[in-house]
Design a protein around this nucleic acid. Structure first.
Lengths: 204, 204
DNA sequence: GAATGATGAATCGCTATTCATTCTCCTTCG
DNA sequence: CGAAGGAGAATGAATAGCGATTCATCATTC
């Protein structure tokens, strides 16, 4: 059993336990039990309980962010880029429900470190959206009176709220493709420049 | 000093302390200090720490919900109703920042009682939106292919994300009116039925 | 037989909750 | 009118339990 294995095992276990109980109610001994490791072992790999949470953010959420980024970068049409963002964001969270729960719960905590996390790595992720909107505006696809900073939040917030539905409701009422499509559709219709020939051409 | 005064004082204090530190990190003695009351006194009015949080939800958030509901009910035009919802929701949260922080943080906790709260009182609030959308569809103002259940979440999620911005950022980059207007505009443009004469008439 | 990794029982600090005591403010009666 | 008394409210020091963290000890590997 290599060192690297235990580090990973503990993080995976922590994702499960934090998702189930929330950071504060989760006990180190819970994580240790799920990871099949002694309580003390955890302190060989992490400085303290909060450090485990930060590692979850860095590694697991970081992985999520990279996957979406990578896909977006392959596209050039801003409309398609937003559709892909919606679809991929939702489907990755759906696949990894525990992680989705942690994002919902812990990334909202009023904590200095978490706040910092939100303004660095995570907001870099959300900034993908405003960047795409600016591209669309430059191409005369999207209306110029839309503020990218507000629109990005509107779009991300809409997706985030759908993610919340899945976490709170035991049975999902809508499937991912349908949800992602509806949200991109509402949003795209809302920002597309109807006076523009480009918008028709690109079939946005 | 009447009994009713202390109950209120403790709740007001709890709103501040929970907002600042979060439920788990808030100490009863902190709340007591802010309320200018002895630690023990709190237990004359509340069963336990969690009971204080539930009371905050019931009383303070309930008050917020009622205010928005009341305003909406005065309107008949679905487009205006959505605009008013956006504006009032944001401005009430802005006025009561501590409460907004609690909503952001604690209403996301993975807790059975809070989950129940979300599926009763709070979702009744969000359901105002889907109700308005259905009205609009019945009047041929809004497109029929929009699913009210998804659209309500898209709209609410967008507003909620803007509220989050204000909480995390020390200095707000956008004012309320502008934000509410942009979000309603994007959303209304996204759901309005362009083929319909009604939509023009009503100047949506 | 070191050196490194792992263990888990014991420690230690923290804070929700309790409860014996004190305070406040009426009511009653001499 | 003022003193006595007592009911309910308020106090805050003491308790009690929890759980993060430590560390003396054990296991494994070379």
């Amino acid at each position: 059993m290599k060192t690297i294995d235990k580090h990973e095992k503990i993080i995976k276990a922590a994702v499960k336990v934090f998702a189930k109980k929330g950071f504060f109610s989760a006990r180190i001994s819970d994580i240790a039990k799920v990871a099949k490791v002694a309580d003390g072992t955890i302190y060989l790999y992490f400085n303290n309980k909060f450090d485990i949470l930060l590692s979850v953010f860095d590694i697991e959420i970081g992985r999520l962010i990279n996957q979406v980024k990578e896909l977006i970068e392959k596209e050039t049409n801003p409309c398609r880029m937003l559709e892909i963002f919606a679809l991929k964001h939702l489907s990755l969270l759906k696949e990894n429900r525990s992680l989705a729960e942690i994002i919902q719960m812990e990334l909202r905590q009023n904590n200095k470190l978490i706040k910092e996390y939100r303004v660095t790595k995570f907001s870099e992720y959300v900034d993908i959206i405003s960047h795409v909107i600016r591209q669309g505006q430059a191409l005369n696809l999207f209306r110029k009176d839309i503020q990218p900073g507000i629109a990005k939040r509107a779009f991300f917030g809409a997706l985030d709220e759908m993610a919340r539905l899945w976490i709170l409701a035991p049975k999902p009422a809508y499937n991912i493709e349908e949800t992602a499509m509806q949200i991109s559709k509402i949003f795209l219709c809302g920002i597309i420049d109807k006076g523009s020939a480009q918008a028709d051409e690109k079939r946005c």
